[in-house]
């Protein structure tokens, strides 16, 4: 849904998206201790598998993006998880764009990463119910952030695309609602069952 295929965007937008995603990936990889590689990779695999599940919405169905949840669980490493998911999608199913890999990574990862870090003060030591509500808001806003990114990429590519954007933006509303509810329940579940997965719930470690 947030994937922009090759052939739609203009070259400057592709280049800017690539540069932005490269910065995000570099930050994510720098934050990643080499010994954390297996854990991060396994979580990235979960997000990939979860995004294949079709959630019914009326007569149609949506696939969740889980950008907000990835930001909450992985932090800045979400850039790497999203990028890997996109590459896997290309080799396993032949879907997705190659030139738009950067733009797509940025659109899906950046809102979640930023919003999760902004929500951190609200989540520190929060009860499971409260964490769920905050996470739901983060997830909904992350979807809107992704929608804004997709719109910006299209609008900057060609002014001819602008009229279509209003319709496209409407299609993100049900997704935002679905993601908010799912992420809210996932986070309150994790806060009760396995809070270690959610580093945002815990005070930052003091490293020697």
């Amino acid at each position: 849904m947030a994937h922009i295929p090759d052939g739609v965007l203009s070259l400057p937008v592709i280049a800017a998206g690539g540069a932005g995603a490269a910065i995000g990936l570099a930050l994510g990889l720098r934050a990643l201790d080499e010994r954390e590689i297996p854990k991060t990779a396994i979580l990235a695999a979960v997000f990939f598998v979860a995004s294949l599940v079709a959630v019914p919405v009326g007569p149609s169905s949506v696939h969740v993006l889980l950008g907000g949840l990835m930001g909450l669980v992985l932090g800045v490493r979400a850039f790497a998880a999203v990028f890997i998911g996109l590459v896997l999608q290309a080799v396993l199913f032949g879907f997705g764009g190659l030139s738009t890999l950067g733009v797509d990574t940025l659109n899906m990862a950046l809102p979640g990463v930023v919003l999760a870090s902004l929500a951190r003060p609200l989540l520190l030591g929060a009860s499971p119910a409260r964490a769920g509500v905050v996470a739901a808001v983060v997830a909904a806003l992350a979807v809107f952030g992704t929608a804004a990114g997709v719109s910006a990429a299209l609008a900057l590519s060609s002014s001819d695309y602008v009229p279509a954007l209003k319709i496209i933006l409407l299609t993100y509303l049900p997704l935002a609602a679905v993601e908010a509810v799912i992420t809210g329940f996932v986070v309150s579940f994790l806060a009760r069952v396995k809070p270690e997965i959610l580093p945002v719930l815990q005070p930052p470690e003091i490293r020697p």
């Binding site: 979580l43 979960v46 598998v49 979860a50 599940v53 889980l66 949840l69 669980v73 509810v181 799912i182 992420t183 809210g184 329940f185 996932v186 579940f189 994790l190 069952v193 396995k194 997965i197």
Partner: peptide, 9 residues
């Protein structure tokens, strides 16, 4: 949501 949560756990 519990499906995704359990998968994560």
């Amino acid at each position: 949501a519990y499906f995704v949560g359990q998968l994560l756990v």
